[in-house]
Design a protein around this nucleic acid. Structure first.
Lengths: 359, 359
DNA sequence: GATTAGCACTTAAAGCGTTTGAGTGCTAAA
DNA sequence: TTTAGCACTCAAACGCTTTAAGTGCTAATC
């Protein structure tokens, strides 16, 4: 999907850039007359028309109809993003806003991601997305039981992705302390670091034997609980913020088109799929039909993943029309995701963050 | 906000009902000619016109313009819902679908509510909402600590609404077992059943003294953790499903109007406000401007709360245009919410559900 | 050979008057 | 009280014209 356009004359580049810049900010097709007054070089409209015709032939521009100006094609945007676009200079105000967030030292990654996405959405005026990943191959690394009052106890499970999950187990009858700690020992012996596929019926009956008559009936619901914990969010969580902003762009004034996109945003799985198959540690830009979800053909998706080691633990980005302020969006996503990445990396070096800022 | 229309002649009722039924299913204004052929009684179009003029004078009907038919006003819908509407007879297929859900014995209330809402949305073709409430005045009833590996431990908090929350505490230094159990005891002594407002600085330093030097630095992050746990979701959670369905109704083809509604759905707090101030144990129907959110003036909100004792623990419902199939929606919401309510009530009687279905 | 002025051509969008048709309100008769 | 009949209203559809922005092409110019 990578295109090489090395054979573009300097002048064509200038013209293409001017067209795209003008179209991004104005939304209207751009004509030759406008360009005569908005190019660093001074050439006549006729020359510009000739150049534009050639750019169109190359697939970089499109014409809504014969008597309209030119509009960038998807390839045009792609070329712009790859080799034309000038880096966006963030204003002090913007940097301030972004820094305020990353300095706020929230603790949970998903909270950070969500507020980062929200901020990004506000600043760029597109819809923000925050992805919170989850290791697909989780196992429980440690079980604990904890009496909780009459007739129930709490099962605490630590998982290999360093999360803690709990589940209340109601048993109608009394369980002695010994039975409970035997149960804990059995769980730790048989189910720790065990993949779900390895849990067979015979293993379960072995556990039931090992745990003794008193608590045998608890094994089954517990195994089910483990199953739920591991399978929950196997695909990760994807949240959006500011979907209503899309409606301000004329490209979504077609209700049918917008409905499709809204559906994809609600269903999540298509976008989740794109995000989870993306490249790590770099900005991902999917312009129009570059993503395979046909209902997103008129949308652009820009995001960057956050990794921990070589695991993708999250992503933030925006979604908007193809006519997007790429320069600003990419700069913002980049800055913010890098900072969050850095926070992640630092956290690893300083695992005692919490005790540190006690004072 | 309650209106009495006892002085409506039987014929007027017939006409009004026919108009509303026709408009709900067809979406178009209803004229006198159509009614001559779709009324149980046979009267001329002129008579119908006279009656319609009077119904309009009473505020039950409206005319988009002089030469159009009549459309129900909000009061018209209100009257319809209160005293005109015929009960909807659910088909076997629908009852089956609903029963399949309530028999599936999911465990967590929010899961049940969400799938119920989803099903309701599918069946009625409007947008579903699921509300998971939260006791506003939660306190922690029990603390447990649990060593978790090197340099960190798990703080388990049971709250008065019978939830369990956990928080990983990273302390860079080693903490002895004695210190940890002393910490646990101190927490249970000072913070159990304590309202957040009662946690003063002097209480904190008292705790720091009581827990001893070794673990004193942990008190502060823990208190912060307690604060987070209690404040989290103080308002409850509100989820929507099938927002894109709204776009199929012509009343939302005005993009500006829909954008407003979409914004309210995303922001959630307005709708949350309505839901949390609603009447318990009955179907709540907010037609158009009956709710105070002006961006929802063209929408109707129908839901019913789920209670536990006298606490509202959830709600399910739908949101759609004022021109809604009230009869069907109300029947569906009612059936489903009652069944969920029953599940709640039964669960209370049989707390050992889980051990029961082990076989 | 590249550039440009000039001009005929194209086309969506806007404007405007007409027609259509559904539906009404009112009057007068039943 | 009901109804037939009729004049009236108005949005929507239709068709026609105008407008304006912008093009492609040709021939002249640099």
């Amino acid at each position: 999907m990578s295109f090489e356009f090395k054979d573009l004359s300097e002048r064509k580049k200038l013209i293409l850039q001017a067209i795209i810049d003008a179209h991004i900010s104005g939304g209207e097709p751009v004509g030759s007359k406008y360009l005569t007054q908005n190019l660093p070089i001074s050439i006549s409209s006729a020359t510009i028309r000739n150049e534009m015709a050639e750019l169109e032939e190359m697939g970089l521009l499109e014409q809504p109809h014969t008597s309209a100006g030119r509009v960038p094609s998807e390839y045009g945007y792609r070329f712009y993003v790859n080799s034309l676009m000038k880096g966006y200079e963030m204003t002090m105000k913007e940097i301030d806003e972004l820094n305020r967030l990353t300095k706020s030292k929230q603790e949970k990654l998903d909270h950070i991601l969500e507020s980062a996405a929200k901020l990004m959405g506000n600043m760029t005026n597109y819809t923000a997305l925050a992805f919170k990943g989850n290791t697909p191959t989780t196992v429980v690394t440690q079980f604990k039981t904890m009496r909780m009052g009459v007739g129930k106890f709490l099962l605490v499970m630590m998982t290999s992705d360093e999360n803690v999950q709990t589940k209340v187990i109601n048993h109608g009858f009394e369980v002695t302390d010994e039975a409970l700690s035997r149960l804990e020992a059995v769980l730790n012996k048989y189910l720790c670091n065990v993949d779900l596929e390895q849990v067979t019926l015979s293993l379960i009956s072995e556990m039931e034997r090992a745990v003794g008559l008193e608590a045998a009936s608890l094994i089954n619901p517990i195994v089910k609980g483990v199953y739920d914990v591991i399978n929950q969010n196997a695909m990760g969580e994807l949240k959006f913020q500011g979907v209503d902003r899309l409606l301000q762009y004329p490209e979504f004034s077609d209700i049918g088109r917008f409905r499709g996109l809204l559906g994809a945003i609600e269903k999540k799985d298509d976008i989740l799929d794109i995000v989870s198959h993306s490249k790590k540690d770099e900005i991902n830009v999917y312009i129009g039909s570059e993503n395979s979800v046909d209902v997103m053909n008129n949308s652009t998706l820009i995001f960057r993943t956050i990794t921990q080691g070589d695991k993708v633990v999250g992503a933030i980005g925006v979604i908007g029309p193809c006519r997007m302020d790429y320069s600003k969006v990419i700069a913002t996503v980049d800055y913010l995701s890098r900072n969050i990445q850095q926070m992640m990396d630092n956290d690893k070096l300083l695992p005692d963050k919490e005790s540190e800022d006690k004072k």
